[in-house]
Amino acid sequence: MSLEHAYYIPHDAKWPIVGSIGLTLLLGGFAAQLNGSSAAGMAMLVGFLVLVYMMFGWFGEVIDESEAGTYTKLEDVSFRMGMAWFIFSEVMFFAVFFGALYYIRIFSLPWLSGEGAGVATQEFLWKGFENVWPSNGPASVGGEYEKMGPWGLPAINTLILLTSGVTVTWAHWGLVANKRKQLIMGLAATVLLGFIFVGLQALEYSHGYNELNLTLGSGVYGSTFYMLTGFHGFHVTVGAIMLTVMLYRSMKGHFTPENHFAFEAAAWYWHFVDVVWLGLFIFVYWL
């Protein structure tokens, strides 16, 4: 068989270099900003806009190709594998912060309070320090604060995210059954729930900062709390934007019951942030 038509190899990729320039401006600008440079904010903004432009361009090109029927089963498999492995890399990224939380609670705080190998550590350096979670450490970094309990907003947020997992699956069923309306309604509900989640999370942060005196600087509790929930919130935002794009595409009539990798990728991603949230709810808020 002639394989001329077997696998699509694009040519003249101009978006990657645009992406590199955008990324460099954004991160370089951020670094300069942290060093106190005044012009850096501008570089960051430009870099961010360039990145957004790149994403519109790049994904736009791929969507056009997809809609033109350029891709076959083979490309589809490549995309799927690519997305799956990307999500795996994200899992590892979150694993680091969960790992840090684990280490702090199982090793460093007990040692600082004189357990196990830490007898001399407590006796000579941190006399009187007791390990009670949540902790901002033996020097009470950041001052008095209150814990963020699990049964208020976080429980509601758990419900919201779990529901959104259901709605996105319902949308998928609609897509497979060629029920466009169910697809659009399911997606719209998911996006809405996603943004409500982010909004509530913002509310919780403002509660933490303004009323509980719980900040990033509240020792290890504040550090792990905000870093874990913050990166998760960022991922929810990204996922919600992805789903918004899917919603827009669904309304424009993209996707077929057989061919809708982009939708599935966004849905996988959404389930991934969902699962991470369950971990957060248990290990950050609850235990």
């Binding site: 840090a100 702090i104 600082l112 020097a139 950041g142 600087g217 020792g219």
Partner: peptide
């Protein structure tokens, strides 16, 4: 101002 690697805040450089 996080203290992942600072004992004063409950962290550990060895982490």
């Amino acid at each position: 101002a996080t203290t992942f690697f600072n004992a004063a805040g409950g962290g550990d450089p060895v982490l």
